[in-house]
Amino acid sequence: MEAMIEAVGLVKRFGPITAVDQVSLAVARGEVLGFLGPNGAGKSTTMKMIAGYLLPSRGTARLCGHDVLEEPLAVKRVLGYLPEGAPTYPDMTVSAFLDWIAAVRGFKGRERRARVERAVRLASLGDVLFYPIEALSKGFKRRVGLAQALLHDPEVLILDEPTDGLDPNQKAEVRRLITTMAPEKAIIISTHILEEVEAICTRAVVIARGRIVADATPAELAARNRWHNATTVVVREAEAEAAEAALRALPSVATVERSTRVGVGLVALSALPREGRPIEGAVRDALAAAAVAPRELFVERGRLDEVFRDLTMKRAA
């Protein structure tokens, strides 16, 4: 599949500091790439370079085959970009701002109105159309930025923290919007909300100290975690000892962790597998053999937050 977003060996130095170091990535149509990393890791700097706002110290980026350094205008036409912090002109009304964006993008008359209306609908801005942007809440401001990025129905979307500052309902709405658009476009979103990556991204790139430390699907990343395929059972306190002993006796179980935060008189036992192998069947069998009836039993996919911490912290030492 042909890559619609390509970054080739991007390097950005600010004086003696190398903020981005040899970042290469490719995103095809239909992919939603989640760009992860701690604050200051170089996420925004990389996105600014791909969007053509910052000039790379070395390397380049191509959007739909157009080189960002050689054909900046062609790049900007196919790109919808939500910059860091979703900047907009505070003294304009939402309607005037979007109309201005449409005019700068060269839309005229009836089509311009249609484009603005569509963007307003996508970002659910109908109620605040004639408010000055400075009077809006953080969530609405973010959605104005999003509407601006979607206005020309671009092939490539680069969204820097699109759900930052939104409440859970709005977050869900924006995620739904991204998922709906995804098949037609190539999308990069940056975030540090890991549930978001699992919810909407087809691929996750983790960056730490300017370098890519992982590039995999969310499931592959989760599989790297010791909690991958971990099986948790909730049992009555009276049966806890027997259950724990039964689980520990299993050769495929590396360790068992105990938690009492599940309710009065209940204990949760989590069996972590060796080498991430599925152990659900073995756990069921062992409990049945020990005559313990679990109240609940569930299998985990792996904890992305731990993977994230492992990937981004170990290099800091």
Binding site: L79, G85, T88, V104
Partner: peptide, 14 residues
Amino acid sequence: RSGTIELLLTLPIA
């Protein structure tokens, strides 16, 4: 200061 320059310079204008 407000960051809108990033918006302006990524719009398709010379």
